[in-house]
């Protein structure tokens, strides 16, 4: 199976704090990967580096063989933990925006998903609640036919009912040779959709294994294991 993401000795410091330290990571296509770790463990830093929003101090990252740049951004669909859409836009404006800039964006799919979530495309983002904005962002990001989806806290702010729908879309939407990285604290909610998990602790890669093997080896759920590994 071919590699979608490869990190070699990836290191990033902010002043004196080390956000990522010598991270080596290889992700293959066709997997749903949970990026798990407590607050400040380096999850968002890793995702930002993959998306070219941060430049590592040393080490390298390759997405389908490419360094982060214009070409890699064409095949990576990124959902930041922020509400990043301009407030003055209508939902339909944001769809046009994505359609304009991403060749792989499927606007029919986006309108479909909006309909399923009962979101009115003529509304302006200003008038939407934070959770609803997050839904719109997720719809946009998942309506691309990307090779790699990077979802940073995709379900944190939405209600449990929408959570189920969103997770379903994530599983059913992506194609065989695409991979999804989901960073979250809500492990129990997503545990069942994951193929692999990555535990990240103080900027170090603690574990990267298929979920089934962990369950077999440890005899416990990912949620339980997480609570043990990251016990305060």
């Amino acid at each position: 199976m071919s590699v979608i993401l490869e990190c070699r000795s990836l290191t990033k410091k902010f002043n004196t704090t080390i956000a990522l330290s010598e991270v080596n990571l290889t992700l293959e296509r066709g997997r749903i990967i949970g990026l798990l770790g407590p607050n400040g463990s380096g999850k968002t830093t890793l995702i930002k580096i993959i998306n070219g929003l941060l430049v590592p101090d040393s080490g390298s990252v390759h997405i389908a063989g490419m360094e982060p740049g214009v070409e890699s951004k064409k095949i990576v669909s990124y959902l930041p933990e922020k509400t990043y859409l301009p407030d003055w836009m209508k939902v339909s404006d944001t769809i046009n925006f994505f359609k304009d800039f991403y060749e792989d964006f499927d606007d029919k799919k986006a309108y479909d998903m909006l309909g399923r979530l009962n979101l009115d495309p003529t509304k302006s983002l200003k008038s939407l609640s934070k959770g609803t904005k997050e839904k719109v962002q997720l719809v946009l990001v998942m309506s691309r036919r990307a090779d790699l989806y990077c979802l940073d806290e995709p379900i944190g702010g939405v209600d449990p009912a929408a959570r189920d729908y969103i997770l379903n879309t994530i599983i059913s939407n992506y194609e065989e040779n695409a991979s999804v990285i989901i960073s979250t604290h809500l492990i129990a909610d997503i545990e069942n959709v994951l193929d692999d998990v990555i535990f990240i602790k103080d900027g170090h890669l603690h574990l990267h294994e298929p979920v089934d093997e962990i369950r077999k080896k440890e005899g416990k759920s990912i949620d339980q294991l997480f609570r043990e590994v990251f016990k305060c």
Partner: peptide
């Protein structure tokens, strides 16, 4: 558009 949260949108567009 570039330095606040909207920057997350603009800087991840496939543009230079």
């Amino acid at each position: 558009n570039l330095m606040s949260e909207e920057g997350y949108l603009m800087f991840t567009l496939p543009v230079k």
